[in-house]
């Protein structure tokens, strides 16, 4: 599935919910199902510092595609992190660099990305893209 197709799928998924409480329930479910980073791998260099919830991000290049694994100590943040991973993981660095991530706004997550929410989500997207740039230049 292309990045855009996944984005579309997520937007449709969230459209099914009437209110934010249900959206949060869905995010919590997503958070619970996210494959976690093992405790030993939650090193400081993988930590994306937010003020309140912490996010860890691991990226590996496999057959020209980047595989992301991520985790957070807060479950709602983890649900949002799961969405980012679902959209961007298993794509080439070029695809990731060019991803518009429009679903974020369409789903109504923008308020969680403002720097003041300080949950590290904005920094996470930046870091995912920076990792892609790094892999691209590495060749």
């Amino acid at each position: 599935m292309s990045i855009e197709e996944t984005e579309k799928e997520i937007v449709e998924e969230f459209d099914m919910f009437d209110d934010w409480m249900q959206k949060y329930e869905h995010l919590i479910d997503l958070g619970k199902s996210l494959p976690m980073i093992s405790e030993g791998e939650k090193t400081d260099d993988r930590l994306i510092k937010g003020c309140q919830s912490r996010v860890w991000l691991k990226s590996e290049l496999k057959n020209g595609k980047i595989i992301y694994t991520a985790d957070s100590d807060a479950i709602i943040t983890k649900g949002m992190v799961a969405l980012m991973v679902r959209v961007l993981s298993d794509h080439t660095p070029d695809e990731i660099i060019n991803a518009k991530m429009e679903f974020v706004e369409k789903v109504g997550l923008t308020k969680h990305l403002s720097p003041t929410r300080s949950n590290g989500l904005l920094s996470m997207i930046k870091q995912m893209k920076m990792d892609a740039v790094a892999y691209k230049t590495m060749g």
């Binding site: 409480m21 949060y24 309140q52 919830s53 807060a74 479950i75 709602i76 943040t77 949950n119």
Partner: peptide, 20 residues
């Protein structure tokens, strides 16, 4: 549970608390 998660749900219910 993480304070951030609790604060986020309470906010949806119109309840303003501080977390962190």
């Amino acid at each position: 549970l993480h304070a951030f998660d609790i604060g986020t749900i309470l906010d949806q219910l119109g309840i303003a608390v501080r977390t962190g």
